[in-house]
């Protein structure tokens, strides 16, 4: 083992954790909508893209970052709510497959719209607090990674408080487990669905904003990030919050390690192969619901 091993390993690990945290946020977005409606929202990646692009535009217009970020998140939440209200809700009663196709259509539409509102160029957002690298066990860590870790952690804690402690959060869980019973106790399941799109949009936007200073952002950045987030959600077990986070981290680290030790040309393939391999032995993912329950 060479003396280079540890620093190199640390470097791959840190960059894997950074991108993994982003995947985790996207995966959480998938899980929230899946829980509320059993629909996989393929426009999730577009939430990520719009979040990043809107922040770039706002900060180019000299809006301070502290204001640009909440504005961009709010804009994406509006897009998410509009998607539910004007595309998903009118198809109420349609099959899940139909709804999924609607979200695919919406993602193509949003991507097209982005080329009109913005352009097809690569854009870069300034890092939140400079680019001076921090040395960690022989590896370097960008300050932006600390933002990614910190905000992801804060969001995970906030979500577990919301679903575990608040009545509204429990009502959302109840709706996902038994829609009929939820209606019968007086939960307005249409509001729950609307809320789930709003929350997922906010998570996507935050992911897109956090990653924008690290990788470039452009009109179709959501395609790959959406796909990776989806793979992470599947890997962890669709609908599981813990699964989404673990799935995201595992996928991010696996990708970074394979880019470092094998070849960066294969990093996407290797990550997806790992996902497939896990699903082959554990079809419901690492933390997914097992079939069958006591009656």
């Amino acid at each position: 083992m060479s003396a280079q091993f540890m620093p190199q390993f640390m470097q791959y690990l840190l960059s894997g954790l950074t991108v993994g945290a982003i995947y985790a946020l996207v995966a959480l977005g998938f899980s929230i909508i899946f829980n509320a409606s059993h629909v996989i929202n393929f426009a999730q990646g577009e939430f990520v893209m719009i979040g990043g692009m809107a922040t770039v535009s706002l900060s180019a217009a000299e809006v301070p970052l502290g204001l640009a970020i909440p504005l961009a998140v709010a804009a994406v939440v509006l897009v998410g709510l509009a998607l539910e209200k004007f595309a998903v809700e009118p198809a109420r009663g349609a099959s899940v497959i139909t709804l999924i196709i609607i979200t695919i259509g919406a993602s193509i539409f949003l991507r097209g719209l982005a080329t009109l509102v913005w352009d097809k160029q690569l854009h870069v957002l300034k890092a939140f607090s400079g680019d001076a690298p921090i040395a960690v066990a022989g590896a370097t860590l960008l300050p932006q990674s600390l933002w990614v870790f910190g905000i992801t952690l804060a969001i995970v804690l906030a979500l577990s408080w919301f679903f575990g402690r608040t009545l509204l959060g429990k009502a959302m869980l109840a709706t996902s487990h038994n829609r009929l019973a939820a209606q019968l106790v007086g939960i307005n399941v249409r509001h729950v669905l609307l809320l789930s799109y709003g929350m997922s949009a906010a998570l996507g936007a935050i992911a897109g904003i956090l990653i924008a200073p690290i990788s470039f952002t452009t009109y179709d950045v959501g395609v790959m990030l959406g796909l990776k987030g989806f793979a992470a959600a599947i890997l962890g077990g669709l609908g599981s919050g813990v699964g989404a986070v673990v799935g995201g981290i595992v996928l991010g680290v696996a990708e970074s390690m394979s880019a470092g030790y094998v070849s960066s040309a294969y990093k996407d393939a290797i990550a997806l192969v790992i996902t497939l391999a896990v699903l082959f032995f554990m079809p419901s993912g690492l933390f997914g619901k097992r079939g069958g329950e006591r009656v």
Partner: peptide, 26 residues
């Protein structure tokens, strides 16, 4: 107008207490 549905339809993964609290959701 409140219904006890056929087949009980409890929120299986939630605790008994949470099930009851959700009954008083409104």
């Amino acid at each position: 107008i409140v219904q006890v549905p056929e087949g009980r339809q409890v929120f299986a993964p939630l605790t008994v207490e949470d099930n009851l609290r959700l009954g008083a959701y409104l």
